[in-house]
């Protein structure tokens, strides 16, 4: 039973107003970027056109010739999608085994996996450069895919593990009584039951891959360069190209921000390794 307290004036008017103000304030930089992306480069830096201006699509239409956007976008899609698929391919069996056949070492293995995620990437910068160059992998899709997979594998295993563990053991045992084999258990019971979890894990993994900005910047030049590298390479336009830079930035983050809205809930679990529920 809830206790009905008389609503204070704050909760009636103050809270919504303040909350909306905070929300808009946080969204403002993104809004500003989108707004600027519809201004011509010249208008973008003029105070008189701050909010009222002649909108134009030229920045978006010229993304290819200004920045070769689609080449980088293609690389981002290829690497992020492949890395997500590969990570799930390796991660699902692993999480499955850990959740349903835990041994004494399972906990330690999981913790160790997480600890690899906590190593600062910069510490192995030179060895990675050295290795990839000597193996001829530098600036290749394969390398980017592998690196993205490996840095996300711990989180993926971890998230899937927590989803699989939520499946009641009784249901798995009922399956055993009913005569399913390992593959059947996987196909008929596990995947359908954890489908939501698998999808949101994949989404989150994809987002992390897309936004990765250390290895994709340091281990690529042109062939496998992703959008992070493109933006990083155009870091300082000195005000000349605010319009076109905003457009290419908006195009780089837009789809991901929208995707992110759909997996807010899983984000908490994914990033805190299930420690906050």
């Amino acid at each position: 039973m809830a206790i009905v307290a008389p609503p204070s004036r704050f909760s009636k008017y103050g809270r919504p107003v303040l909350a909306w103000a905070v929300g808009l304030l946080f969204f403002f930089p993104i809004f500003w970027m989108i707004l600027t992306s519809f201004k011509s480069d010249a208008d973008a830096v003029k105070p008189e056109y701050l909010f009222v201006f002649q909108p134009t699509l030229e920045n978006y239409l010229n993304m290819t010739e200004n920045y070769d956007y689609w080449r980088f976008a293609k690389n981002s899609v290829i690497t992020a999608v492949s890395a997500t698929i590969f990570t799930l391919f390796v991660g699902i069996p692993c999480a499955y085994a850990m959740a349903f056949n835990p041994s004494k070492a399972t906990k330690d293995v999981l913790m160790w996996m997480l600890s690899t995620k906590m190593l600062p990437a910069a510490a192995v910068l030179y060895p990675m450069t050295f290795l990839t160059k000597s193996l001829g992998l530098f600036d290749t899709h394969f390398l980017v895919i592998m690196v993205l997979s490996l840095i996300n594998l711990p989180i993926v295993v971890w998230m899937l593990f927590t989803y699989f563990k939520e499946i009641p053991k009784d249901i798995i045992e009922a399956g055993q009584m009913d005569g399913v084999n390992t593959w059947g258990e996987f196909k008929e019971i596990l995947v359908p039951l954890a489908w939501g979890g698998i999808v949101s894990t994949a989404l989150l993994c994809f987002i992390f891959c897309w936004n990765e900005a250390y290895w994709t910047v340091r281990l690529t030049t042109t062939e496998a360069a992703t959008l992070s590298k493109l933006i990083e390479g155009n870091r300082a336009p000195e005000g000349l190209f605010f319009g076109r830079l905003s457009a290419v930035s908006a195009a780089a983050v837009g789809p991901i921000v929208v995707l992110g809205w759909f997996c807010q809930k899983q984000l908490v679990q994914g990033l805190t390794f299930g420690a906050v529920k």
């Binding site: 900005a213 959008l227 991901i256 921000v257 809205w261």
Partner: peptide
């Protein structure tokens, strides 16, 4: 509110 979190660091 949550949107900024998904913006790639470079952007």
């Amino acid at each position: 509110l949550i949107s900024p979190f998904f913006v790639m660091p470079a952007v």
